[in-house]
Design a protein around this nucleic acid. Structure first.
Lengths: 340, 340
DNA sequence: ATAAATAATGTAAACGCTTACATTAATATA
DNA sequence: TATATTAATGTAAGCGTTTACATTATTTAT
């Protein structure tokens, strides 16, 4: 494998000049540039990335750490990030983690190893402050996905959960529902919390009292949706509509309603959140909120690259929060089309 | 950030000893080891990965390059790979590519940059020999996913497409079908080819003549399944069963049959391949072949790590081919439960 | 034509680590 | 106890870059 020295020798210039040519830094005469590029192509030279990082202390790889639990969403998000950052020669390195402790470890390994020039951390259920303090203390630019707006000097990209949840609940209310259940996702999950908060807000705005019997605790899995909904169906005075904090649980809920001998949406309307691909195919097709994950990824990539850039110059720590707009998708499971 | 020199100084030993301690190479007295480890922990030292790679020429990063088109499968596969290789301190770096040309570029960037110690290449539709020759010439261990068994000295992990496709077709035949259609995936895709070959084989074994009208060309998308199936439905003598080369197309096909005013499976049975999560929720639930992607990923990880290990010692280039067994999932869309 | 200013290129140190080889310490053997 | 053997540690070169600074070439001004 050819090194920069080989190129320099063959081109009859110094390594400094070769470096300047391939990185486009500093002045070099067109004649020299051409001469060097010729050899670069001949030898099929490309620089040793490790040597570059070691010397320049600037890595063009981005670490992405996320919990196993978000693997469903991860694929699209990462495609979005890649799509954006690849344009600028950046790579993505993956660190998945089973639990929070492991997530912290992964972050610190990325940081200490000087492998990454920036970090994307997905920690919707984060309880551990280290996840925030570690990279910030280290001075490495980070973008968080789906975290509460608590930490100063932190930049994050979040979904417009609250607003859409209000809208979705309002939609149910307009359809005539007053007894609306809610199935929560995992207990510490920020997305879930905001969606729940929006639901509560909508009820309150419409003067509907919250019935705690109608609030169930799931964990984002379809199974938990099924089981909690089954209980809701068995209530003597059961809800006429159920809002699940994500589609997987909504799908489980639909099965539960069916298995209880009831109909969706006639007896119980069901709505979800996420718009996963199954949602349009299940019967009845699920009314939900579309979350543009690919787009989210692009925004995250763009934001991070901006942080990295400005970070090279000056270290202004602004707290930034970018909200991704979402869209309600009305299908059959909410009963919009129904004449009541 | 602490370097190995800081640690050495503080512990009163040489950098060589520190290196031996943290890498567990060479002999070092327990006393010394303890002394060094104490400082390592105090300073929260962890080695600069770039410097390690630069010096040792052995990267613990695995490059995974795959076409955009396989992003559906990618998430689970990568989880599987991570799951295995993380145990051994290996990381994954992602290189997605729009087309084949870009895929080759990505591979060559990984190779030339010396960023990766091994490569996983997913190239089910590969036409370009560079994808194979590049890493082999470079001497970097590679594992291919879903590629034809053509290249010598190559190791690959593939699905047992042919066998399962024969079985699935046989299942249809046993159900009484003789007019069975097939919807192909994208034209150069190896998985699709093998599935088609299995279908052909089963027909032949049962003395059923192939009706070219029943063979449609899709491209793995649901939309293509819908459109091609619509045409199949319009045939004056139409097939009584259709085998789609993947679930997405099968789902499109089910919609098409419905939209043609026909019933699945009574008028036309439909089966697919992959067992994506939607398949169990669509009505009727799709009979299909389950592909254990996570498991596939684990196998790929294990195989690659083995190659990397032996590569360090001796460069025996054996052609290896690992076949992942699959499982038929009988649901409703094939009409097994039907009394005919 | 010469001096001054500017542009282009070269030189060499440094980045943080590993490891072959040299040296010193500890243990075994006679 | 002296010597041979083995174990533990140290020394320093080198991995392939980038870049501050030094040097040389080119252009501009006089």
């Amino acid at each position: 494998m050819a090194t920069i020295i080989d190129v320099a020798k063959l081109a009859g210039v110094s390594t400094a000049t070769v470096s300047r040519v391939i990185n486009d830094t500093g002045k070099v005469r067109p004649v020299t540039r051409k001469k060097v590029m010729k050899v670069v192509n001949e030898l099929n030279f490309s620089p040793n990335v490790s040597a570059q990082i070691l010397q320049s202390k600037q890595s063009k790889t981005i670490g992405m750490v996320f919990p196993d639990a978000s693997s469903l969403y991860f694929s699209e998000i990462i495609r979005g990030i890649c799509n954006y950052v690849n344009q600028f020669g950046f790579q993505i390195i993956i660190g998945s983690a089973h639990d929070e402790e492991e997530e912290v470890k992964t972050v610190s390994r990325f940081l200490n190893g000087h492998t990454v020039g920036g970090l994307v951390i997905m920690a919707p259920s984060s309880q551990n402050d280290d996840l925030f303090t570690l990279p910030i203390n280290h001075g490495t630019p980070v973008v968080f996905i789906s975290v509460p707006p608590v930490k100063a000097g932190t930049t994050s990209v979040v979904l417009d959960n609250f607003k859409m949840s209000v809208e979705m609940t309002n939609h149910l209310i307009k359809l005539g529902h007053r007894n609306i259940g809610f199935i929560n996702g995992s207990s510490h999950n920020y997305d879930s919390k905001r969606r729940y908060a929006g639901y509560l807000k909508a009820l309150q705005e419409n003067g509907i009292e919250v019935n705690s019997d109608f609030i169930a605790d799931g964990n984002f899995t379809e199974d938990s949706g099924y089981k909690t909904c089954l209980k809701l169906c068995e209530l003597t005075s059961r809800p006429t509509a159920i809002f699940a904090a994500n589609d997987a649980m909504a799908i489980g809920a639909i099965e539960a309603v069916k298995d209880s001998g009831l109909r969706v949406p006639e007896d119980i309307a069901i709505v979800g959140f996420d718009d996963i691909s199954t949602s349009q195919y299940i019967t009845p097709a699920l009314t939900t909120v579309r979350v543009p994950l690919f787009n989210l990824g692009q925004v995250v990539g763009k934001t991070l690259l901006q942080k990295i850039d400005t970070n090279y110059e000056n270290h202004i720590a602004v707290t930034e929060r970018i909200v991704i707009p979402l869209e309600i998708i009305i299908r059959e499971s909410c009963g919009s089309q129904l004449k009541r």
